[in-house]
Design a protein around this nucleic acid. Structure first.
Lengths: 348, 348
DNA sequence: TTGAAAGCGCTAACAG
DNA sequence: CTGTTAGCGCTTTCAA
């Protein structure tokens, strides 16, 4: 109960009357292989516990050229998806008796690189990279240092990557939006208000382009065509999204039949806009979000959501690491979270 | 551009034609103090960069008995407050050129302790503990190992702690709820529906008890008294909170004039309940939440919120660490996030 | 202005 | 079954 000073294996060796290497073996579990007498091992272990001894992992790491640390870099902590990832990563790391080191790099390429270098200085055993701004440079550095690494969410050409199946997810989400469309109203025909729109995202990015493809395929399957104006890939900036939703509303002279919000930020802006509209308008509006936010389920307006399977992503990433040399791009289907049906029609 | 193998200061020393100690000094910044010729230092630095060299921090740490790592343990990542804390902690750590190691311990005391021991094995330079389930044991271990540590959010007697000023925050939140109460309706007098209630939390916990005190003081100041039944400290379990809100509604025969949700979980249950009520009932309902959730501002119902100042908490914690031996309990006032006034009366 | 040498605490041959 | 020895890569006296 009072491990006042830092003890070393030598202290223990001395008190037991044995050598440091025996103590080391007893304490790190290799004693069976080293044919240490069971009783000796137990005595050592018992004393160590009594003294409150704990190994110096820096020393061990220096000697073994490993560290027991596994890194995860991600853009930010304050984001549901990434904090879910952190959670899963922590659980999986500990299950493998590794110590997770999670660092947010603010979507800045330079910060990503310097963080990677930092982590390499600590001899981390592996690096996970989620949502990287600059995947290939990171991969270059890791490869040069022979550091096993894997990308999550944002893939890297030539390096093992695991991402969500954006196209399938988008198709399913679009179908759900279509399924909850209000009954067809001839009055709206030709106004553009009878259509479903996709808002947000950057068509040049891998993820967005797949989502757009999924959206278009579902729309075409159901309506026979998908007009160019139904895809508003205006990026991820909240201000821009807000402007666009307002513009769309003005152009159509009201809400469209349905909307596919292509990211949590965009969704937030849509809600902000909707919170200013009279409830009556929402009655015939079908909304979906490609991202997950539990509060979405608490709105009075039903919202379909797509949720990335963070645990699956992390587990798959670890598996990719286990078969070295792989440059696979693995895809994990997301989870579709359907809104419960509307309970309270606007007329109360 | 191709740092293929791991280099050491000896490699550099050899190629420059100098000694390892000179290289070491040149690279770690002590070269001025060691009176190394500027030109030598620069040549070393240039070559190191060219070779893509990076120090082995485990070796440095072993030698110096430090590590450059600072730990933060917290209950979970998937929680707005804690992920905000992680974010601030990361920024502050990097500003001090330390490497943040953030680990979630699932509110399990054993996991907290084993994580602390793990981290101590890596010779972390300091430990931050947020929302600990078992503060005093953690503090004991740290003190025994002479590891500087500080508690955030959940204080520890006898150890430096920084927490939010719960009483003031609760008083302000209650006042905000009172300020937005619907005009007094004589019909409700005596039914209990004219009162404001506090729901959730555990009166035995430090934080809850301060919040209850703040609530009662604001209520008493305004109404002249605060009945015992106005405080429903039913814990943090969502199921229980859901039951309680339903029971309250049944008992009063409708929504009360106002409600103080004493945690994010409880708030979520309140919203879940409200999402099932017709909008017309919400017109005369005043809601506040002691916690912050950005989606709260996107609801059609105005919600007042109290937000802990995560950056302030982290900064203050770091300051406490800088004046060693302190066992202060420092309090940081929270931020009151007032709902914008109701824009859309129920009649649309 | 610099180099040599010792050693941080541990592990892993290699001898016994 | 166990002890001795030789480092892992770095920092830090101490001498020169």
């Amino acid at each position: 109960m009072k491990p006042t000073q830092k003890h070393t294996i030598h202290d223990i060796a001395m008190r037991i009357g044995t050598s440091a290497s025996t103590v080391s073996a007893a304490l790190n579990g290799t004693w069976k292989a080293r044919r240490i007498k069971e009783e000796t091992a137990q005595r050592i272990i018992a004393l160590a516990r009594e003294m409150g001894y704990s190994v110096n992992l820096q020393a061990r790491g220096l000697r073994t050229a490993r560290s027991g640390l596994v890194g995860l870099i991600l853009p930010e902590h304050s984001n549901r998806f990434f904090s879910d990832l952190s959670q899963s990563f922590t659980v999986e790391a500990r299950a493998r008796s590794q110590c997770p080191v999670i660092i947010a790099t603010a979507r800045k390429p330079e910060e990503e690189l310097s963080t990677v270098r930092d982590l390499m200085g600590y001899s981390i055993d592996a690096l996970f990279v989620a949502g990287a701004a600059d995947p290939s440079q990171i991969s270059d550095i890791c490869r040069a240092a022979q550091l096993p690494h894997v990308f999550i969410d944002q893939p890297c050409p030539g390096a093992p990557s695991v991402i969500t199946d954006n196209e399938t997810g988008a198709r399913q989400l679009t179908e759900a939006i279509i399924d909850t469309l209000a009954p067809h109203s001839p009055a709206l025909e030709g106004t553009g208000r009878e259509k479903v729109y996709l808002l947000g995202g950057d068509a040049r990015l891998h993820a967005s382009s797949r989502r757009i493809a999924g959206f278009q395929s579902a729309i075409t399957a159901h309506f026979g065509k998908c007009d160019a104006d139904q895809v508003i890939a205006c990026g991820y900036e909240p201000e821009v999204a807000q402007t666009e939703i307002q513009a769309l509303y003005a152009r159509l002279g009201g809400l469209p039949a349905g909307l596919f919000a292509n990211s949590i930020n965009v969704f937030e802006e849509v809600l902000r806009f909707l919170s200013q509209r009279p409830e009556i308008e929402l009655g015939a509006f079908s909304l979906g979000c490609f991202d997950y936010e539990p509060y979405g389920a608490l709105l009075r307006l039903p919202v379909h959501m797509v949720r990335q399977r963070h645990l699956e992503l992390v587990r798959t990433a670890w598996e990719l690491l286990d078969k070295p040399g792989s440059t696979d791009l693995v895809t994990v289907p997301p989870e579709l979270c359907l809104a419960r049906p509307r309970r309270l029609p606007p007329e109360g």
